[in-house]
Design a protein around this nucleic acid. Structure first.
Lengths: 137, 137
DNA sequence: GTAACTGCAAAATATTTGCATCCTT
DNA sequence: AAGGATGCAAATATTTTGCAGTTAC
């Protein structure tokens, strides 16, 4: 069985064309994708609403995760480290290249721990680094 | 002279009511503010467009900075460490409380350095921690 | 066959732009 | 007085919701 349907099945989702194709996009793409990217890359083959709902479902099932950004957009990327539903290991650093505009998951770079002030309790942490990536330097 | 007009003057901006009031809001508020918060807290005294333009201007002048979030919203907070235009020292960790929903600048917690893969060059980095804050624990 | 998924329409929300008027300096 | 800032109108973009028809299992 191909990779994409297999993942959908494991997550308890029905295997549909839109889900398979969108998931495939994430595998083919090395960086993160925004909603608008997906519309472009699928040539609007699916309804805009379907794309919204698919992304939302994928996040809920832990197939992809959201990446924080400072402009008001949301970027999505694959969860590489076997994220199970409710057990995200989305603990790697994200890199946004100012040159090629790609957002890359640095899967091998773990978000370092920080010492929080008294009384604060950490649940999750995320880190975004901007600069120039390996391809653009 | 009051604090707010003084800051506007230093940044080379004309001192207007909307700018003074919005800046005052940031000083009175301990957490970060979203565009919608500002509209609410000013009781829509200013045009929505003015708020957009004011926030944009403040970011450009280094008076406030944007905080990365995973939902598609932008949060703004004061730059505490004398950010000059183009010389941001927005290097502190941001904390989002899952209980009171406030976003707090941990001015004393610096974003730690991370070792990037070969060829990557860092320009800026941001870190967001979620959990429970000191007031809610 | 049934539950889940999709597409369409439409509503709600958010953001941007142009321009005339007003305010700060 | 002049340039910048604001408000209004309107265009544009983004996201959400309801529902009927379709598809996966």
């Amino acid at each position: 069985m191909r990779k994409e349907p297999e993942i959908l099945k494991q997550s308890g989702l029905s295997i549909t064309e839109s889900r398979t194709k969108i998931l495939e996009l994430f595998y083919k793409n090395d960086g993160a994708l925004a909603h608008a990217d997906i519309e472009k890359k699928t040539a609007a083959a699916f309804d805009r609403v379907t794309v919204y709902r698919t992304l939302q479902t994928f996040v809920e099932k832990g197939i992809i995760h959201q990446i924080p950004t400072t402009d008001n957009s949301v970027l999505y990327a694959l969860c590489k480290h076997n994220c199970a539903q409710g057990h995200h290991h989305d603990d790697h650093v994200h890199f946004i290249c100012n040159n090629c505009e790609k957002t890359i998951c640095l899967d091998d770079v773990t978000v370092p721990e920080v010492k929080l002030p008294k009384g604060f309790k950490k649940k999750q942490s995320a880190m975004v680094v901007t600069g120039v990536c390996g391809d653009c330097k």
